[in-house]
Amino acid sequence: MRFRPLLSVPALSVLLFSGCGKEGPAAGSTSSPPAAQVKGTPVVSFQGGAITLEQLQTYISQMNPAARTRVQSVEQRREYAEGLARFELFVQEARRRGLDQDPEVLEAAKRAMVQRLLHKEFEEQAAPVTPEDIAAYYETNKAEFISPARGRYSHLLVPAPAGSADRAAKKKQAQALLDKARKLQPLDFDGFDALVKEASGDPEAKPASADTHLVTPGELKEKLGPEVAAAAGKLQRVGETSAVVESPKGFHLLKLTDVRPERNQPLEAVSSMLRTRIARERREARVSAYTEKLQEQAQFKTDTAVLEKLQVDVQAPQAEATGPVPGYLPAPQPTR
């Protein structure tokens, strides 16, 4: 069972307009009390309730300035007030028909209650994120905001230790491989990987072993030597290939496969983003801890043996819905 629209588009737009700017009573989530119990000055009266001047004043105060421009004239105010009253008439009629006990209405109410509980427990009671909190978080995660430039390379080596008898021949081999590399398209990394295999003399060699991953110039120097690091520093665009580089280990070719520029974001530049992130992470941690507490208090347990009997046929046709989609909350994250 699913709801169908009960109101025309113009009428619905009035209802939506009543809540512009802020979620609250103007959205029509609560009905007016009986007329005899109405507190305030009635503006629109009807059997069983009224819309009061005080209510309207509160609702309008919660609207954003743009929405308020649409209730300037007396006629616009009348349309707004009567729209709220008409909504209450529909609420009364729905209750008269017992729709307040409809499964989908009850499910929607449960969802609203859970959302309100989450808001009250984790929004209203949230401690403010202080500048000191932000500064500490920044220092702990500084590598995310300040880091040197890095490059990633595919490294081809024709082994020829210094003093080896075949070093001259190996240099010619490296030059021949360079000639082949320069005939490749700049982004033909697979083609360069094939040359890496050829240089190793092992057709089963894994090109991944030639991947330097992202490294700083200093890390590359430590890994492959100063000659190779100096040649890498001359490569600027992804796809560029170095000249033959001679080192005590042999002859090298490098192909630049990725570039990560230097990152230098001072605290002031990321404070707003960090404030939001810290608040979110704190909220998630508190929700997880609160969920675990509720589960423990309720002796929450799952019978896995029974669960294994649940049948899930991904090929079966979808059955017609017979009720509302149930609410769902994910498992709590491990608390630190």
Rank of each mutant, 00 (worst) to 15 (best):
V9L: 15
A11L: 14
F17T: 03
A26G: 15
P33S: 14
A35M: 13
V38P: 05
V44Y: 10
S45M: 13
A50E: 05
T52P: 03
Q55S: 10
L56W: 00
A66M: 11
R68M: 05
S73M: 08
E75D: 14
L84T: 01
R86H: 08
F87A: 08
F90W: 13
E93L: 13
R95N: 10
L106H: 03
R111G: 10
H119T: 12
F122H: 12
E123H: 11
E123M: 08
E123D: 15
E124M: 08
A127V: 06
I134D: 11
A136R: 15
N141H: 15
E144H: 11
E144S: 10
P148Y: 03
Y153W: 00
S154Q: 14
L156S: 00
L156W: 02
L157C: 00
P161N: 07
A169P: 00
K172D: 15
Q173C: 07
Q173N: 09
Q173E: 15
D179K: 11
D179R: 12
R182M: 09
K183I: 07
F189A: 02
E198S: 04
S200I: 00
D202W: 01
E204M: 06
P207L: 02
A210Y: 00
D211L: 00
G218K: 13
K221H: 10
K223Q: 14
P226L: 05
V228F: 05
A231E: 06
K234Y: 01
K234R: 13
R237C: 03
R237Q: 12
G239N: 04
G239D: 04
E240S: 01
S247R: 05
H252D: 05
R260Q: 15
N264A: 11
N264M: 08
P266R: 15
S271I: 02
L274K: 04
L274S: 00
R275L: 04
T276Q: 14
A285P: 02
R286I: 02
A289C: 07
Y290C: 05
L294Y: 02
Q297C: 00
A298G: 03
D303F: 04
A305C: 03
E308C: 04
V314D: 15
A316Q: 13
Q318G: 08
T322M: 09
G323Q: 05
Y328L: 14
P334K: 04
